[in-house]
Design a binder for these strands. Sequence first.
RNA 1: GUGAAAGUAGCUCAGCUGGUCAGAGCACCGGAUUGUGGAUCCGGGGGUCGCGGGUUCAAAUCCCGUCUUUCACCCCA
Length: 433
Amino acid sequence: MKIPPVKGTRDFYPPQMAVRNWIIDGWKRVSRRNGFEEYDGPIFEYLKMYQVKSGDEIVEQLFNMTDRGGRDLAIRPEITPTLARMVNQQINSLARPIKWFSVPRLCRAERPQKGRLREFFQWNIDIIGVDSVLADAEVIFATVDFLREVGLGPSDVKVKISSRKLLGVFLSGIGVGQEKLDGIYAVLDKKGKLPADTFEELLKEQVPDKDAAGKILDFMRVDSIPEVEKLIEADSNERIAWNEVKNVLAYLEMMGVGEYCVYDPSIVRGLAYYTGIVFEVHDIVGELRAICGGGRYDNLLKDFGGPMVSATGMGMGDCVLEILLREKSLLGDSISTREIEYFVAFADNVFGSHVYRLAGELRRRGFSASFSYKPESGLSKQLKEASAQNAKKCVIIGQEFLEGRKLVIKDMGTSEQEVVGYDDFLVSLERGG
RNA sequence: GUGAAAGUAGCUCAGCUGGUCAGAGCACCGGAUUGUGGAUCCGGGGGUCGCGGGUUCAAAUCCCGUCUUUCACCCCA
């Protein structure tokens, strides 16, 4: 019986695994150099954990199960609730700021489509316990730090920054009731994703008042900083929220990634829990869904039964990122799946025992080494195997060994070879080369 | 969850108005090559044509169902 892979999952054969590791290694390296510590949690949690923040529709997109004790569990679709739970549990003993990162494997029972599978990896970074927008800037910087490192420049991707707080006080200011905010956020979030007239109709459903709807459209349209400046009154709540946006942009400019970043009022983010700065990274062409998104969520720890501690963070999935990297030819096919430093070959199989002995010596010293499993192979075949295994050098044991205990070291890149004494070779290894 | 398109060898695909239609290239394995790899040439293995049912004398080919993939919608943590 042939059993196919499950819908929306991926098999990682060595070449794909190399790509996955390349991406994840980059995420981890950048996290660490930005001062984040790694954490992880269980891959399943109580189902309830994911019902706190969101409604039952979310639960439909969860893989859930009941264990033999009758507990309702779910495979994690995101790691932020786990983070909140873990931080809450030790909130009094954790040194602030808490800067944590994780690369969890997540599952969502959605219908797969471009850039979206049912099992994926997501880089998460969060800073907890810092009210200042410096933390938001740090999160965005680390995000850009990674994108820059993998070769995505300001002409490839844009960080679009906005503020849920600014939008909130603006909407309140024009008379929108608090209870309508979430509905409006959901519509505004679609601004860039829908044709202009469709969007305006949706907006009218939420905001029947033509005057107010017009003001909202104006607000969403103005993305030039001097223009926004003119619209915002001094000493208002709007001014406070707007200054946060300006400060984030200023910090990012100082940190040297200003080129990547713009204010974009159309960034809203779908979910209700954002409370301040929000941002998304998009490809310039705009063909793909968001590469990543994040923002400030000051109420989350409290919502999960903890104290009121501010937090800001970012999540980046591997699927869209990989598509973009491929489109930009930044992945290459050259990510190697195997690193062999020395392939040990014999010119005549009477030297076989020396081959195995030397390979063992090499490995004991921490070098990667391999050899042919076919004692009847000629040297030609063995060199072919060495090439296939991507070996950097070949050590050939032949007549020279019999005559003067010497080895032939062949560089597989340049084809140059030299004859060295067996013991000298081992000594040179100790020196690291 | 809704809609559309597609599924033939490990991969990319040809064949598809039913009747040598089970094929090509690449990949893989072996040989040419008993002390020198990547190239070239030659040879080989590998597919119940996604699966199930139907129509027919005859189905990879037509019809239905199903699964999977892709794309769009819903949703986006």
